[in-house]
Design a protein around this nucleic acid. Structure first.
Length: 113
DNA sequence: AAGGTGACCGGCC
DNA sequence: TGGCCGGCCACCT
């Protein structure tokens, strides 16, 4: 369980706030989320945050992939193809760990202030 | 308290 | 087409 820093909202929580806005059937990238929270160069932290997202409710981590539409985080899900199945369930085609028509499904997060 | 780690990214060769 | 490298920075031991 992530802990909040005093009255400040933690970095992780900001990531989750963005992630929760991803519409079903759409995907975004770690970098895009990083950009949205005003830390464009901290894409890595977004991935790190997703690692802990399992403890958070309503965080569609499966809709977050890397810039190439590659399912780099699939090993963090239970089973070997859960992430892929969740995506296909939403109408997103996945082949060889990669999203088909990635650009077409891409969703640009709203910039947070 | 200091160093290691990483579900990334962009640039370069 | 594909691999390597440096930057990045919150979190964990």
């Amino acid at each position: 369980m992530p802990q909040l820093v005093n009255s400040e909202v933690s970095f992780f929580e900001r990531v989750y706030q963005i992630a929760r806005q991803i519409p079903a059937g759409r995907v975004t990238s770690y970098g895009a989320i990083a950009k949205a929270i005003g830390a464009a160069k901290s894409a890595r932290m977004v991935g790190y945050a997703m690692n802990a997202s399992h403890a958070m409710p309503d965080v569609p981590a499966h809709r977050v992939v890397n810039r190439n539409g590659l399912l780099t985080g699939k090993h963090h899900f239970q089973g070997t193809s859960l992430m892929q199945q969740l995506l296909e369930n939403e109408g997103i085609e996945v082949e060889n760990n990669q999203i088909i028509h990635f650009k077409k499904h891409f969703w640009e997060p709203d910039i947070q202030r």
